[in-house]
């Protein structure tokens, strides 16, 4: 599956290409000299231990942090643009149309004080939807797609379980049909059966919508299931990069070997 996906997508122009991206916190390295291409429909996993710079990298890509050097070229509707040099207004417009960001903690990505329907509708209203009936119909549709029953539409997310909150966050992000989804530990903090359902759901949505995604996680099972390609980070550097199955089954770098062998076999 992965090999096929890889060979077919490489013929297209990259959706996002990153060149020499670095971010320093004073003298400490956040991430250094990261370069990669992400192709349409491709899911890229970024794995590594805590402090390896994977979240810093994701924040730089999504425009939440300003990198010190490097460029992030995104294929916008009007042609490739460097999002690092973009005006804030333009970057935000991208962030609510072409991009989506799924936080590890749903509380960071949801508005806890407003109803599930309002949460899903916010992005629609931000891009100019002004018809209440349509917004609500779309919200109901999306709640259904993430397996939340329609009668919870007027409930606040604070009354939802952790798994439901995470699914609601996904619905809220995907409702405007983004092309690229950033995910920061999307399954963190969920128990294994809920994780499995969420992964199943994500995999379905990614395939069905032809989404590209960049998933940061420390959970190798997540990338095994979702990612076409894998980047392994350590100490701010990318130490290994390749097809997911290749990297996980035949790790070359010493750290990747350690990482793969640390997973408990049940």
């Amino acid at each position: 599956m992965d090999t096929n996906a890889f060979t077919t997508v490489t013929t297209a122009d990259p959706l996002m290409s990153v060149r020499g991206l670095s971010k320093f916190y004073g003298t400490r390295i956040g991430c250094d000299a990261v370069s990669f291409d992400l192709f349409p429909g491709e899911v890229l996993g970024i794995v590594g231990e805590s402090g390896s710079g994977k979240s810093t990298l994701l924040s730089c890509l999504a425009g939440h942090l300003a990198p010190d050097t490097g460029e992030v070229i995104f294929a916008t509707a009007a042609g490739p643009r460097d999002t690092v040099k973009m005006a804030e207004a333009e970057r935000r417009r991208l962030a609510r149309t072409d991009w989506a960001f799924v936080h590890q903690n749903p509380r960071d990505g949801l508005r806890m004080g407003i109803s599930a329907g309002g949460n899903v509708g916010e992005r629609l209203m931000a891009v100019g939807a002004r018809h209440y009936g349509d917004i609500r119909a779309q919200a109901i549709d999306w709640l259904g797609r993430v397996e939340i029953s329609a009668d919870r539409i007027d409930d606040r997310p604070s009354g939802f379980s952790g798994g439901m909150q995470q699914r609601l966050q996904i619905a809220r992000n995907l409702v405007t049909g983004p092309r690229l989804v950033f995910m920061d530990e999307p399954t963190g903090g969920l128990d294994v059966s809920v994780q499995a359902r969420l992964l199943d759901l994500l995999r379905g949505l990614v395939r069905e919508m032809g989404l590209s995604a960049i998933i940061v996680t420390h959970d190798l099972a997540v990338v095994r299931l979702l990612a076409d390609r894998l980047m392994v980070m350590k100490g701010g550097y990318v130490v290994e990069h390749g097809l997911t199955d290749q990297v996980l089954d035949d790790p070359q770098h010493a750290y990747t070997q350690l990482l793969v062998s640390s997973v408990l076999q049940v």
Partner: peptide
């Protein structure tokens, strides 16, 4: 600054929903 006013309609949406 960025005319990012989608949230204002979320408030009105909540009104109608409730």
């Amino acid at each position: 600054e960025l005319e990012d006013y989608g949230l204002m309609h979320v408030k009105l949406y909540e009104d109608i929903a409730r």
